[in-house]
Design a protein around this nucleic acid. Structure first.
Lengths: 146, 146
DNA sequence: CCCCTTTTCTTGAACGAGTCAAGTTTTTCC
DNA sequence: GGAAAAACTTGACTCGTTCAAGAAAAGGGG
């Protein structure tokens, strides 16, 4: 993996979002790339394996700034803490395991927001349709079956 | 409104779910009927206007038991606390205001779960497709526009 | 290359929704 | 009416997240 190239890419992403390039931010981007759908705690742990002095508050701030700029996407299935992923811009969806909470990506047939039209939105101006599929992951469904 | 009839209906609902009929449970059902999409705090307040001695823990327990039995539905849009509604069984969806958080119902064209098929669920056994429409409610969109 | 301004990060306290646990009360069935 | 099981009260507690104040670092102009 060409880490130098992606490092430069991350720098460019940050600058184009008017965000300063800092070690904590680069470490968070690397962590989210390596651990898709990780929660804040996991991101913090991954960040600290490279940058041990980064505070938990910095990770919250960074994830918030990146999410607001659209560089990462924040998802929060019911009953779960916030999770983050680097894959943005394709409006894909997620399937969540009711038992263990693990998350996987599901491609959106349409790919642009909003991919669904609501019948009657009561005057709301809708810009996104978020789909969450609920069920059991392969591991949990075999546990239950036997 | 024929309160006695619906009261008997609530009793029947509880009994058919193998749940004992108690004053806190009836009060919670009335509160959720009167305040669709209310969070736990609002349900607690509504319950206490009729039954001032009900504890907050009882409301958590009751809402949990009712949700598990399928008598109420729990929803939790990202960034929101848990909310509850009596309308169950039709797999309808929700539109949520990004600005003020207010929730409204959106009918599902299909009406039975799961109403959408995922392209590739990575081996997950999917039983529900939950759709959340995001946008601005009428009040917030006019505030922003002007 | 250095300084200044602004942004970002560290530290540490605080908040709030939700949960846990022990003991008491209420419901239901016989 | 009495026993067993379920539900409720009370109060402490957890944990993800946020708030606030000051220190550090990034980036642009001289």
């Amino acid at each position: 993996m060409d880490d130098h190239a992606t490092e430069a890419e991350f720098e460019h992403l940050l600058r184009s979002a008017d965000l300063r390039v800092t070690r904590p931010r680069l470490a968070v981007l690397r962590a989210v790339r390596r651990h898709p759908h990780a929660d804040t705690g996991s991101v913090l742990a991954a960040v600290r394996s490279e940058e041990p002095t980064v505070s938990h508050q910095a990770v919250y701030d960074v994830l918030g700034a990146l999410a607001e700029s659209g560089l990462v996407r924040r998802i929060q299935p019911a009953g779960s803490v916030a999770r983050y992923e680097l894959r943005v811009g394709d409006n894909h969806h997620h399937v969540v395991c009711r038992s263990c909470g693990v998350v996987a990506d599901v491609d959106c047939a349409v790919g642009v927001r909003p991919c669904l039209d609501a019948s009657d939105t009561h005057g709301f101006v809708v810009d996104e349709a978020e789909v969450t599929y609920w069920g059991l992951c392969p591991a949990c469904s075999t546990d239950t079956a036997t």
